[in-house]
Deep mutational scan, measured.
Amino acid sequence: HNLTITQGKLFFHYNPKLCLSEIHKMEEVSGTKGRQERNDIALKTNGDQASCENELLKFSYIRTSFDKILLRWEPYWPPDFRDLLGFMLFYKEAPYQNVTEFDGQDACGSNSWTVVDIDPPLRSNDPKSQNHPGWLMRGLKPWTQYAIFVKTLVTFSDERRTYGAKSDIIYVQTDATNPSVPLDPISVSNSSSQIILKWKPPSDPNGNITHYLVFWERQAEDSELFELDYCLKGLKLPSRTWSPPFESEDSQKHNQSEYEDSAGECCSCPKTDSQILKELEESSFRKTFEDYLHNVVFVPRKTSSGTGAEDPRPSRKRRSLGDVGNVTVAVPTVAAFPNTSSTSVPTSPEEHRPFEKVVNKESLVISGLRHFTGYRIELQACNQDTPEERCSVAAYVSARTMPEAKADDIVGPVTHEIFENNVVHLMWQEPKEPNGLIVLYEVSYRRYGDEELHLCVSRKHFALERGCRLRGLSPGNYSVRIRATSLAGNGSWTEPTYFYVTDYLDVPSNIA
C-alpha cells in the first residue's frame, strides 16, 4: 500500500525493539523526510534493546553428524571492536523451508527459537588472519532439518551509529543413524509349514526405512522333555500350542467401542483428552525405555581390526524358502538304536541362519518350516543398504507352526516275539517326523474274553527296548493296539495285532 503524509511529521519514542533503520525507511515511504526535528525521533529510546544489523554474515563451514552440527561463519568486528559482546545463534526444527525470524513471537518477546549466546573469538592483530567464530550444536535429532541463523550482539553506541551483522536463515539436516526397533511384532501360524509375521514401523526411523531383515531359527525343545518319565503317576503330560491366527481386521481397528449394538453396526467412541494424553505418555515412556535398553543392555560386537582377528559373527547367506525346513542338525536320541526319531534339535552355532529381506511392506510369510516346531524370529529395521547396512537392534518374537495331521501315527506293522515265561516283546517304529517329539506310547492289549488293559511306555523305555515287553501273560489269544502321544496330543491307534500265548508248562520236552 502507498502511504503519503502531505502535512505533519513523524514522532517515535520509547520503541526499544524498533531499529532506527526501520524508522528511516518509514520517513522515505511516507514522504516526511526532512520535516522531523532532532528530538522527534529519539536516538536513545528507539532500538536500544534490539540488534540492528546492516551487514550480512556468511557461514564459512558446515559439518553434520547424526546428532551434531558444527558451524563456522566469517569474522565480524565493528569499528570499535570492544562493542562486540558476542553472537546469538538461533535454531529450531523446520520440516519445511518457510521459516521466518519472527515465527511464534508474542507480545512478551518470546519466540519459538532456541538461542545460544556465543563469546567472540580472540581478536588477531592481523586483519587478514582473524579467527572464524563458530559453535557445535549438540543433542539434535537424527535425520531432522533445522533452520539456523546467527547475528551479532553489540553494545549501545553513544554516537548512535547503527552497526551489526546478521546471516540469512539456512537449512541444515542432520545425518541418518540406526533406527529404533520395529514396533509390535506379531507372529502367527496359518499352516503346519508357515508363519505369518506382521509389525509396525519404528517410532524413530532416523532416516528413510529402506528394508527390513527377518531372521528365523528353529528352537530346540526343553531338555526336561527328553529326561522326564511322563508315565509316572502324578506327572502331567506336557503340551505345546501353536500360535493362533490373526483376529479379523475389524476387531483390530483402534479407537473402536468394545460393545456392539445388537441391531447392527455401531460407531466408534472418540477417545477423551485424558485417554489420548495417557497414550502419549505411555508411548514416550516406551521410547525412553527402549533407548535405555539399547544403550545399557546391548553391547556392540567388536569388529575385526587390522591384526587379522576374525569377526566372530557368522556370515549372512541367503537361502531359498524351500530350504528352511531342514535348518537344524538332527541327532538321534540314543545312538545305539537307529530307529528312534531325530527330534532332539541342538543347533550348531556355526550354522548360517536363513533370512529374508523385506522391502516396502511390514509383513512376511515364512514358508518351508517344520510342522509343530518353535521358531525364534528376529526382526531388524534398516535405513541404508549400501555401502553397508545400517540397521536397528533386533526385536524378537516366537511362534510355533501348526501340527501336521497323521504325523504322530505309527507307520509300519507292530511285530512281536514270544519268549519263555510268557513274555512277549512288542516292537514298532517311532514316527519319523512327529509333531514336536514323542513323549510316550500307549499300549492297549486284551486277552479274548477279558477286559482291555493299558500300559504306558516312556520315551526312554522305548529307546532301550525298541518297544516294550509284556510279562506274566496268561495263555490265550491276544490283540494289541499302540498309539503315540506327542507334544500336540495323541496320534491314531494302530491296526490290531494278534498273537497267541501258550502255557509254557505244557511245552513238550526233548528229553527222552
Rank of each mutant, 00 (worst) to 15 (best):
N206T: 04
G207D: 03
N208Y: 12
N208A: 05
N208K: 14
T210P: 02
T210H: 13
T210G: 07
Y212Q: 00
L213S: 15
V214H: 00
V214A: 06
W216N: 12
E217R: 13
E221K: 11
D222I: 10
S223C: 14
E224R: 13
F226R: 13
E227I: 11
L228W: 13
L228A: 13
L228M: 09
C231I: 02
C231P: 03
L232D: 14
K233R: 12
L235C: 08
L235T: 04
L235G: 07
K236W: 09
S239H: 07
R240P: 14
W242A: 04
P244A: 09
D250K: 10
D250A: 08
Q252H: 08
Q252G: 14
H254V: 07
N255I: 08
Q256R: 06
S257C: 05
S257L: 11
E260F: 08
E260N: 15
D261F: 08
S262G: 10
A263C: 07
A263R: 09
S268I: 11
C269D: 08
S274P: 10
Q275M: 10
Q275W: 11
L277D: 06
K278S: 14
L280T: 15
E281P: 04
E282M: 05
S284K: 13
R286T: 11
T288V: 13
T288K: 15
D291Y: 15
D291W: 15
L293R: 14
V296P: 10
V296S: 12
V296F: 03
P300L: 05
R301E: 04
K302P: 12
T303S: 08
G306Q: 14
T307R: 13
T307A: 06
G308W: 05
D311Y: 15
R313C: 14
S315Q: 10
R316T: 09
K317V: 10
K317E: 08
S320L: 11
L321S: 09
D323M: 15
V324P: 11
G325K: 15
N326F: 09
V329D: 15
P332C: 04
T333N: 08
A336C: 14
F337R: 13
F337M: 15
F337S: 06
N339W: 11
N339C: 08
S342E: 06
T343W: 11
S344I: 04
V345P: 15
V345C: 07
V345R: 08
P346K: 10
E350T: 10
E350I: 06
E351A: 06
F355C: 13
E356T: 14
K357Y: 07
V358L: 06
V359P: 08
N360E: 13
K361Y: 13
K361E: 10
K361I: 07
E362I: 12
S363R: 04
S363N: 05
L364R: 09
V365E: 08
I366S: 01
S367H: 05
S367D: 06
R370Q: 13
H371Y: 12
H371G: 12
F372I: 01
F372M: 08
F372G: 05
F372K: 01
R376H: 14
R376W: 09
I377G: 04
Q380I: 14
Q380P: 00
N383W: 05
S392M: 02
S392K: 03
A395W: 10
A395H: 11
A395L: 10
Y396W: 08
Y396E: 04
V397K: 13
V397F: 14
S398C: 14
A399V: 11
E404G: 11
A405V: 09
D409K: 09
G412R: 12
P413I: 01
T415K: 15
H416T: 10
I418D: 01
I418E: 10
N421H: 07
V423R: 13
V424A: 07
H425P: 01
Q429S: 15
E430T: 08
P431I: 00
P434S: 10
P434R: 02
P434G: 04
L437T: 00
L437M: 06
Y441A: 01
S444G: 13
Y445T: 03
Y445A: 14
R447I: 07
E452C: 12
L453V: 08
L455A: 12
L455W: 05
V457G: 00
F462I: 03
A463C: 11
A463F: 12
A463E: 07
R466G: 15
G467E: 02
C468Q: 06
C468K: 07
L470R: 01
G472I: 08
G472Q: 04
L473N: 02
G476A: 02
G476W: 00
S479A: 07
S479I: 05
V480K: 00
V480S: 02
R481K: 14
A484N: 00
S486T: 11
S486Y: 01
L487R: 13
L487P: 06
G491A: 06
G491S: 08
S492P: 06
E495T: 11
E495W: 13
P496G: 01
P496K: 13
T497H: 08
T502Q: 06
L505R: 05
D506K: 04
D506G: 13
P508V: 11
P508I: 04
S509Y: 11
S509N: 15
A512T: 02
